[in-house]
Design a protein around this nucleic acid. Sequence first.
DNA 1: CGCAGGTTTGAAGCAAGTCAATTACCGTGG
DNA 2: CCACGGTAATTGACTTGCTTCAAACCTGCG
Lengths: 250, 250
Amino acid sequence: MMVGEQMMVGEQMMQLSTQASLLRPPHAGPPIPHAASLADQPHNAVSALEELGTVITVAKNAEIWAQGDNVQYSYRIVSGCIRLVKLMEDGRRQISEFLVAGDWLGFDGTAIQDVAAEAVAGSVLKRYKRCAVDALASRDNSVAHWRFELMSQKLYLAQEHMLTLGRRTAGERIAAFLLDMEARTGRDRSGTVPLPMNRSDIGDYLGLRLETICRVLSRLKRAGAIRTSSTGFSIRDRAALEVCASETLH
Amino acid sequence: MMVGEQMMVGEQMMQLSTQASLLRPPHAGPPIPHAASLADQPHNAVSALEELGTVITVAKNAEIWAQGDNVQYSYRIVSGCIRLVKLMEDGRRQISEFLVAGDWLGFDGTAIQDVAAEAVAGSVLKRYKRCAVDALASRDNSVAHWRFELMSQKLYLAQEHMLTLGRRTAGERIAAFLLDMEARTGRDRSGTVPLPMNRSDIGDYLGLRLETICRVLSRLKRAGAIRTSSTGFSIRDRAALEVCASETLH
DNA sequence: CGCAGGTTTGAAGCAAGTCAATTACCGTGG
DNA sequence: CCACGGTAATTGACTTGCTTCAAACCTGCG
C-alpha cells in the first residue's frame, strides 16, 4: 500500500513538476482573486528560507498533525492536496480549507493547532522548522510582512467561505467550488480538472451531505454544464456553471 | 437623533468605563479560550501606538467602511459593538464577526476590505493611521508579532465559526452564541448580558432567519435556561444552556 | 473473478425557511 | 399622562431544500 502511494505521488510529481516551484503556478483558468501574488514569497528571502526546508512525503489519508497538536513545523505543498479538518465528538466534520501545490500550512501564530491536517491524496511537502521561520521573520522584515499578508489572505478566504456556508444554496456552493478548483489547480491537456478529494470531503467542506453533492453534480451533468470522471471533472458549459455559482433564483 | 445616539454612547461608556483600557477586561464568566491575552498589545509598544490614535464616535448603524473600500485606518473599540458584514447582490447577508470593547478591526494586510464594518450600537473607537502602524511594526518586532498573533486568533475564530455554520443545529448555534456573548462582554450586577444587536443580526451571524432565532430563544425560555429582556438576556440554568450548546441529540 | 470502497439514485422525513398576522416596545407629541 | 405610530419581536401555519435511510451500481485492484 505504501508502495502504491509512492507510485501515486510519483505520478503527480510528473504532472506537476513544472509547478513545483516556490511561486504559484501559472493558471490555465481565469484569474483568481484570492490566490495570485500574495501567496508568493518575497524574492530576497527565498534562498534563506529554502535552505531551511526538507522534503517529506505523506501517504493518502495520513495525518500531518492532529487537532490539538503542538506543531513545530510549517509546510509548503510541493504536490498533492491537504485538508484542514475540525472534528466534533459525535463525528460531525468540517473541512475549513483544501490546500494544493504552492499553498502554505502551519504557519499560524500559535503552535497549538485547532484543526487537523490530513493528506487528501499522496502528497509531497517541504517542511520548515517553525522557530527558524520565526527567527527569519524577526531578522527580515519582508518575511514578516509576507507571512502577515498570507494570514490576511487566509482570513479573506475564511470570510468568503462563511458566506457560502451561511447563505448560499447547495447548487451555488458546488458550482462555485468546481470553478474554484479549476482556478486553483488548473486543467490538464484533455481539459480535466482533478478532484483528488471524495464526495464526502467535498460535503464536509461545503456543509452538505455527500448525497447532496452527488445529486447536484448529476443535475449539472444533466444540464450539460459539466462532465465527471473518476479522477475529476471537465467544464462543458462555463457560462451555465457560472450562472449556477451566482444564482439567486433557480 | 444624533443627540439620542450620543446619549446612548454616553451611557455605554459609563457602563464600560472600567473596561475601556488597552487590555481586555477581566471577565465575569468562565474562561474564554479565544480572547484572552493574545488580544493584548505588548506593553513596550503601548505608549508608542497610543500617541498615534484619535478617538472617534459612530452612531448606531453608521458605516465605518463599506465593502470594497480602501481603508486607511485601523481601529480599536473603546465601547460599543461593531459588525463585519458581507452582502450579496440579492440582499443575502453574512455577518462574519461581532466586535466588542477591546477588539481590533481593519488591520488586515490588504487595505481593500471585502467586508463592511457597521456600528451595531453607538460606539466609541480609537483610530490609528494604518501606515503609521505599519511603520511601527517594521521598526518594532514585538508590534509585528502582536499583529501576527491577532491575525492567527481571528483565523482560529473563523475556523470555529465555519464549523458552526456548516455543521451545528440552530439550537446549538444560539446557545453557544449566548454563552460566547456572556464570556466576551460579561454581565452587569443584575446578571444581564447585553445583546446590542437585533434578532436579524444574530440570524445573519449564525446563518439562520430571524424567526428561527426567536423560536429557539422562546424554547430556551420555556425550558427555564434563560430569561430575555429588551436590552439583553440572563442565564437561569447555565448547565442546561451548556448542554444545548454542545448537543448532539435533543 | 469478486470483493471493498466510493458513488449514484430513490423514497420518506424533518429542520429550518417562508409568508403572514399579532403582540410588545419605545419614542414622540398632543 | 396617555394615545399614537413605527419598528422589532413573537407566534402560527404551511412549504421546502436538504437530510436520512436504504438499495443498487460502478470501478479499481488483489
